[in-house]
């Protein structure tokens, strides 16, 4: 890595402490996930009945679970899945919602009415209930989770960007862009969107927290990641039966979820300050 590429994040971190801290926490998890095979002391799915349910010790700092798997290694490998959930669970709703919201807000009229009614239908159901229903139809698994997220999550992004577009579409620089003979696509995506997107980017960071918790919840319910893959939500679910005898089985993956979620929250806060967006 070039030394120069670190300078900007460091400078921003000093000026916006929340952003710096969030970036640090998320970055740490990202590095752990990236180098999981090197960092994790054990194979996360290797079972060894002879060392089942051992409390934290120098050999196993986070203890072992009921199948004798190393909890530390499982938490580190779990970061891969959970970061993937946070990323893919946000990016699809973000893209779909932003495009639909922009088009709807820019054209208005019938297009807008139709989009907004579809949006109302999605909003009429409780978020998690609708998601679980979609996953139940598609069958359990991560792919179903992402599809369900995309189908349900886009509404927040669509509403957010539409509100911004409605404000900006009459702006002077949009009139000026029209006076140059630019078409609606160019005006929407080259001129409107870059000016309207800041709020959505900030929201996507705080949304990552919710998606992460949703992913954990869905996995906890047995509809997301399937055992024996290491994922924090699954680990919490597996440890539930042992909470009184082996607290480490639920506590450490739980803490992992909390820290990553906190990291995203701080990032959202810092980005909000930086881009001048208040939620």
């Amino acid at each position: 890595m070039r030394a120069g590429s670190l300078r900007l994040p460091l400078r921003l971190g000093r000026r916006y402490p929340a952003f710096g801290l969030g970036l640090g926490v998320v970055g740490l998890w990202l590095l752990l996930a990236l180098f999981a095979p090197l960092v994790a002391p054990f194979d996360p799915i290797l079972q060894d009945g002879t060392i089942a349910l051992q409390p934290p010790s120098p050999a196993h700092p986070f203890g072992t679970d009921n199948f004798g798997r190393d909890v530390l290694s499982r938490v580190i490998w779990g970061a891969r899945i959970d970061l993937q959930i946070a990323f893919l669970g946000v990016i699809f709703p973000f893209l779909i919602g932003t495009v639909l919201g922009t088009v709807s807000g820019y054209f208005g009229g019938l297009v807008d009415t139709v989009f907004m009614r579809i949006l109302d239908v999605v909003l009429a159901f409780p978020f998690l209930v609708l998601m679980l229903a979609i996953i139940a139809i598609l069958g359990p698994g991560l792919a179903s989770f992402y599809i369900a997220m995309a189908m349900v999550g886009w509404v927040s992004y669509a509403r957010l960007i539409r509100a911004q577009v409605l404000v900006l579409r009459g702006a002077d620089f949009i009139v000026a862009a029209k006076s140059l003979g630019f078409g609606p696509l160019r005006i929407m995506f080259r001129h409107l969107l870059p000016n309207a997107i800041a709020g959505s980017i900030v929201f996507s960071m705080s949304d990552a927290v919710l998606v992460l918790l949703n992913g954990a919840a869905v996995s906890y319910l047995g509809l997301g990641v399937q055992p024996p893959v290491a994922e924090w939500g699954v680990m919490v679910a597996e440890g539930q039966g042992f909470i009184t005898t082996a607290w480490w089985m639920t506590t450490f993956p739980g803490l992992a979820i909390v820290t990553l979620a906190l990291g995203f929250s701080l990032l959202a806060d810092g980005l909000g300050d930086m881009l001048g967006v208040r939620e």
């Binding site: 702006a171 002077d172 000026a176 003979g181 630019f182 078409g183 870059p194």
Partner: peptide, 24 residues
């Protein structure tokens, strides 16, 4: 009309601060 806008007829506005795209 869109093809003619800009090319046949160009326009300069009163307030240049708000008629230029601020993020480009």
């Amino acid at each position: 009309m869109r093809r003619l806008r800009g090319h046949a007829l160009g326009m300069v506005f009163q307030n240049p601060a708000s008629h230029l795209d601020p993020v480009m």
